[in-house]
Design a protein around this nucleic acid. Structure first.
Length: 754
DNA sequence: ATTAGGG
DNA sequence: CCCTAAT
């Protein structure tokens, strides 16, 4: 079912041995993550916050004790994810890359059989010669593996988690948290958060991006684990990871974690490390609750250097992706948007620093989620005491989209904002820990074991907050708002419901899987696509909410924070973005609004990055075009926004599996025939164009030529990089010869070694 | 529509 | 990834 050979290639299939594919690397998992991610992502962001708050509160009372359960659950998911990945890989591998048409095409080199040089010598002969087809065998192998298990994982994911988690969380934890919060409200008020919030609100900033500077101070407890530890350890991570990280192996596995939410509650309790009341206060503060839909939080380093704010994933669809790629660099588009509308002012320092970075990152990164830039321990987070300090400078609230009639009053607006933020918080947030671009799966591991204790690693440590999926997507509307949910919306909703996951699904996952996906999966995909397209329309203005995630990084030294570091985090970002994308693509506008029970109010969160735009736009309809149409005058805004957002495609880092497929295809087909490569190895990956493949090859060659330390993102197995270099050298030489031939005498060619 | 290459 | 030029 899986293998699709193209007739053309089939015959030519070269005997290329499939590289032993480890299991599908992370990237593959994405798919599985899709389902999860959808839910998870939506759930997470705010869950995280809520949970954190709740945990903090709970911690006091109880001692930590419940990571285990979460972990167990996760494991199960992990397996699924792995399976999927494997399957994906198989599919990819299985495809033929052959082209009979041209000698060149036929020309393959088999590493085992021939060196490239040898191949050259024999090239012409080879072209003529029909090649034995190992392909069949290969394909069989592939198919077998494929058939084994793609569907299951994905389904499980879908069913599993997201929703349930959110529910549990909301129902239980939330209540608890609330209760405690109530108690602490008074005390908490003074918290920065509140101030921040207030200021923001007072400022009339529509977008709720609020940063809370020094929420957590590393100072609080040199001795004790940092606050971050709390959240990080448990379920939060997992959830977040699961959702967001579909890409990474770790992520993939983790992503399953999303399902674990039930356990997460316990985990929360377990995580009590935190002493900082600040944090607690923040969390507990009523303001937070009030905030309806925070999607992203940004954490700033206590250092005052914002390591970077992670761009929250904006909901923005396309853009986000692109941004993710080069968080720091790009985002010209996003730059426009004042990332954080509000520093929250509470901590000028951290905030001040962060803004730019944040913006950049934001652009690239998380669309919806709450992103936090956590400042880890400053230069050396590792304390002599063998304690690792983490500082979270601030949280910024992601953008919130609110629709109100022009006649609405400021008070109404404020109320709506509060509702949105509150709802977000209520749903809870998930915290994920990402180290060096990979999710930290095992919550039980110690910082030391994980390597977080190492200064070097600290700068690569990031946290992701993900709001609960359901909430995220909602958009707020004023009762009066002209745009009342149309029938369509309901329909959309229904669709979404069909696939709970869809909301959070990442397009990536879907697409990634596409190539490999078997018929059954295809069906699923089709559903997604449908939803996606819808979503897309709606979402243009607003990023996917589901994706909202919070990313925090803790660079040890500001200096150490490099683009690379950002990139390292990218995986997450990418994941988040993916979510975002998925949301856009997959989730219909309704999706945004749907998942939530409160649908009536539909509230949507917007990533900070877009905040600027949002602000301008917010008053208008951010909702998708549909709604826009309803609201006259909004359309333009939406369009503008969309144009900006839409421009860039979502960033979708190549998974190891994809790289494998690409390498294999290039080995066979050579460079310069990207269309064929595309058809051969990525025919089903609609999101990979031949240009993408060409670009990827370029980057692979570059990657292979630089030191491993300089490489970013998901590590590509050296074995593959070696193959890249060999193939590159081979085909480069080959092309050179061809050029000579054309130019000169055959003699030259011979001289050249032909 | 592809390919190649710079950004 | 994007954009552009050349094909």
């Amino acid at each position: 079912m899986v293998l699709k050979r193209k007739p053309d290639y089939g015959p030519n299939a070269f005997a290329y041995h499939f590289p032993s594919m480890p299991r599908a690397p992370r990237s593959t998992r994405r798919r599985s993550s899709l389902t999860k991610t959808v839910e998870d992502s939506q759930i997470c962001a705010f869950e995280l916050l809520a949970t954190v708050a709740g945990k903090l509160l709970l911690e006091r009372d109880t001692s930590s004790s419940s990571n285990a359960t979460a972990g167990k659950n996760q494991l199960g998911y992990v397996k699924d994810a792995n399976e999927q990945e494997q399957q994906d890989e198989v599919r990819i591998v299985g495809k033929d890359c052959f082209n009979q048409e041209k000698c060149r095409e036929n020309h393959e080199y088999n590493e085992k059989d021939l060196s490239y040089d040898e191949v050259d010598k024999d090239m012409e002969q080879a072209c003529r010669m029909s090649k034995p087809t190992l392909l069949d065998d290969d394909t069989k192998l592939v198919s077998c593996s494929d058939s084994s298990s793609l569907e299951k994982p994905s389904r499980k994911l879908y069913r599993g988690s997201p929703t349930s988690y959110g529910k549990l969380f909301n129902g239980r934890m939330h209540n608890e948290i609330k209760a405690q919060l109530e108690v602490e409200k008074e005390t908490a008020r003074h918290l920065v958060c509140e101030d921040m919030v207030r200021s923001c609100i007072s400022e009339d900033q529509v977008d709720l991006c609020i940063k809370y500077p020094s929420i957590i101070s590393s100072d609080t407890s040199a001795d004790e684990p940092t606050c971050m530890d709390l959240p990080l350890n448990d379920s939060f991570f997992r959830r977040r990871n699961d959702v967001n990280l579909g890409c990474r192996d770790d992520d993939d596995e983790k992503f399953s974690g999303c399902n674990t939410h039930s356990t997460s509650v316990e985990a929360f309790r377990a995580k009590h490390c935190m002493k900082d009341r600040k944090i607690k206060k923040l969390l507990s503060s009523k303001y937070w609750k009030a905030a309806p839909k925070l999607q992203e939080f940004e954490l700033c380093n206590t250092d005052g250097k914002l390591k970077h704010v992670y761009p929250k994933r904006k909901t923005s669809n396309q853009r986000e992706r692109s941004h993710l790629d080069t968080p720091l660099k790009k985002r010209k588009l996003f730059d426009q948007s004042p990332v954080v509308s509000y520093d929250g002012g509470s901590s000028a320092e951290s905030i001040s620093n962060s803004p730019e970075k944040e913006k950049n990152e934001d652009n690239s990164g998380s669309a919806n989620g709450v992103s936090s830039s956590v400042v880890g321990p400053q230069a050396s987070s590792v304390t002599r005491d063998s304690h690792v300090k983490f500082q979270i400078k601030s949280f910024s609230i992601p953008e919130v989209f609110i629709e109100l009639p022009e006649t609405a009053t400021i008070n109404t607006l404020k109320k709506m904002v509060m509702e949105a933020v509150t709802s977000i918080l209520e749903n809870g947030l998930n915290v994920g820990v990402v180290l060096q671009g990979k999710k930290v799966r095992d919550d039980k591991k110690t910082l030391l074991q994980t390597g977080i204790a190492c200064n070097e690693n600290l700068d690569r440590l990031s946290f992701i907050l993900e709001p609960n999926s359901s909430q995220v997507s909602q958009s707020i509307r004023h009762e009066d708002s002209p745009s009342s949910p149309p029938c369509d919306r309901h329909q959309l909703l229904s669709r979404c419901l069909v696939n709970p996951v869809s909301g959070t699904k990442t397009p990536d996952a879907l697409q990634d899987s596409d190539p490999l996906v078997n018929s059954t999966e295809k069906l699923v995909e089709s559903n997604h696509e449908a939803s996606l397209s819808i979503h897309h329309e709606d979402s243009p203005p607003s990023p996917p909410y589901g994706g909202s995630q919070l990313v925090t990084r803790c660079p040890v030294n500001p200096d150490t924070i490099t683009p690379d570091a950002l990139r390292d985090s990218d995986p997450y970002v990418s994941s988040t973005e993916k979510h975002v994308e998925s949301n856009h693509e997959l989730v219909p506008a309704c999706a945004n609004t749907t998942l939530e029970p409160k649908t009536t109010h539909s509230k949507a969160l917007v990533p900070i990055l877009e905040s600027a735009e949002v602000l301008a736009v917010v008053p208008m309809n951010q909702n998708t075009g549909r709604y826009v149409n309803q609201n006259s005058g909004r359309y333009e805004l939406a369009q503008c926004r969309r144009s900006e957002l839409a421009k860039r495609r979502i960033r979708r880092p190549f998974s190891v599996t994809e790289v494998e497929a690409l390498v294999q295809a290039v080995e066979k087909l050579g460079t310069g025939r990207w269309r064929d490569v595309k058809i051969c190895a990525f025919d089903n990956a609609n999101h990979r164009t031949y240009v993408d493949l060409k670009d990827k090859w370029k980057t692979l060659v570059h990657t292979a030529q630089i030191s491993p330390q300089q490489r970013r993102g998901e590590p590509v197995p050296q074995e593959l990089l070696d193959r890249v270099l060999r193939a590159h050298a081979y085909w480069t030489q080959y092309q050179a010869r061809q050029g000579k031939r054309q130019l000169g005498s055959s003699k030259i060619d011979y001289d050249a070694g032909m």
